[in-house]
Design a protein around this nucleic acid. Structure first.
Length: 111
DNA sequence: CGGCTGACTCTGG
DNA sequence: TCCAGAGCCAGCC
């Protein structure tokens, strides 16, 4: 049986599939996703996100729910404002340091 | 076909 | 507190 069908799927695809499972009003860190997917590091997730750029819509892939371990947005310039706005639209609140509380908005809780 | 780049995270000094 | 190194996939010219 070797039912490891997920292995024949590109690593990025697994990451995207996991991001789609993130519920609204919640956020997840790159490393967190990498940990769930298994076999990949946080960098892989970051690379996967950069590969999306503006070709993917938020309705197809809520990429904006993915932020860094500091609870902040890793994007810079315009992308930062866009992601932050999208998160605020879902109810996610940012601190004065522009970071969110994993205890409140963290998916799965981050212990 | 080859090389470059890109949204991360942890550890040590 | 800041800096450097290691881990490692996919798209583009």
């Amino acid at each position: 049986m070797k039912d490891e069908g997920e292995k024949q799927v590109p690593l990025y695809k697994r990451i995207y599939a996991l991001v789609r499972q993130v519920p609204p009003g919640k956020v997840v860190a790159y490393g967190q996703i990498a940990r769930i997917v298994g076999g990949c590091s946080a960098r892989m997730v970051g690379y996967a996100m950069s590969a999306l750029r503006d070709n993917t819509t938020t309705e197809d892939l809520p990429w904006y729910r993915v932020i860094n371990r500091q609870g902040k947005i890793s994007l810079t310039g315009e992308g930062y404002a866009i992601q932050r706005k999208l998160l605020e639209e879902e109810g996610v609140r940012f601190d004065e340091q522009n970071h969110i509380d994993w205890d409140t908005f963290g998916w799965l809780g981050d212990e």
